[in-house]
């Protein structure tokens, strides 16, 4: 058949392009481990900013943790915050520059451990910021120690026999706490372990950015992610482990949606 004669070389043309890396990510190679969900989430944020056309109107606040170097990869304004203090810094930026879009990007060691106070109070005050929370149940950057979000029985370098409630307490489900606060406007929990979930996560994060312009309150999106290096698994295994173990405790879906 003549149609099948099209070679890959002939197909690779600008007019046939359906997907390419967004220009809002810089050409720097991300320092994340192979298969890490941080890279996917960074790309989703950059794609959303490009689609909304708000490159010059957005300010991101980077956390301390694996994503501490986020400002190297984003082709828009970023501000670094002290460990756990991203919501406080974002509050200041948003109050001084209310016309800008402001978001925080934090991991679970940052948002759910040292920054619990800032997180809860920013959400309770209803600051008009968007918060992206990457939950992989472990302190990835410092060597896989137990985080507040580590599941019961989950192994980490400080709980080598699995987390025990009698010794280390219960895992903290931040998003379920935050959903009860009156200041939040949109709360959602998503994951990035399959292409379908990545598409859903993108929709949720986009909503969280769009609702910010309404000035109705904090928009909070938790992204359940993997940590292949910290969990001591291959990236593919870690995504399967995530689906089997993380998702029953952190079920996906929109927890709080605005009334139409």
């Amino acid at each position: 058949m003549a149609e099948n004669a099209i070679t890959t070389k002939e197909l690779v043309k600008k007019e046939n392009l359906v997907y390419q890396k967004t220009k809002l990510l810089t050409d720097d190679v991300m320092h994340y481990c192979p298969g890490c969900g941080h890279g996917t989430t960074h790309r989703l944020i950059a794609e959303i900013v490009e689609e909304m056309g708000i490159q010059s109107e957005i300010i991101g606040v980077a956390p301390v943790g694996c994503s501490v170097l986020m400002y190297n990869y984003m082709n828009f304004d970023m501000q670094e915050a002290a460990h756990g203090r991203a919501p406080a810094v974002a509050t200041g930026i948003k109050r001084l520059l209310p016309e800008k879009y402001v978001f925080t990007y934090q991991g679970d060691g940052d948002l759910a451990a040292i920054g619990t106070g800032e997180t809860i109070h920013a959400c309770n005050r209803g600051e008009n910021i968007t918060m992206i929370f990457i939950n992989n149940g472990i302190y990835g950057m410092t060597g896989g120690q137990m985080a507040p979000t580590t599941l019961i029985g989950m192994k980490s370098s400080t709980t080598p026999y699995g987390r025990e409630v009698s010794l280390a307490g219960n895992p903290l489900n931040m998003t379920d706490l935050i959903v009860n606060l009156p200041g939040t406007y949109f709360v959602s929990r998503q994951s990035v372990h399959t292409p379908g979930n990545v598409r859903k996560a993108k929709k949720a994060i986009k909503k969280a950015f769009e609702y910010q312009s309404l000035n109705k309150g904090t928009c909070f999106v938790e992204v359940v992610s993997n940590c292949p290096a910290g969990w001591k698994m291959t990236p593919v295994e870690s995504n399967k482990w995530l689906a089997e173990n993380m998702l029953p405790f952190y079920p996906l879906g929109d927890l709080k949606v605005p009334e139409e």
């Binding site: 359906v18 390419q20 994340y32 298969g35």
Partner: peptide, 22 residues
């Protein structure tokens, strides 16, 4: 088939996808 699944899941965004209807 040019479905873009690989590009969407790629954490480093290094896959570019092309598609044509013939």
């Amino acid at each position: 088939t040019g479905c873009s699944n690989c590009a969407i899941i790629c954490p480093d965004g290094i896959i570019t996808v092309y598609r044509i209807k013939i």
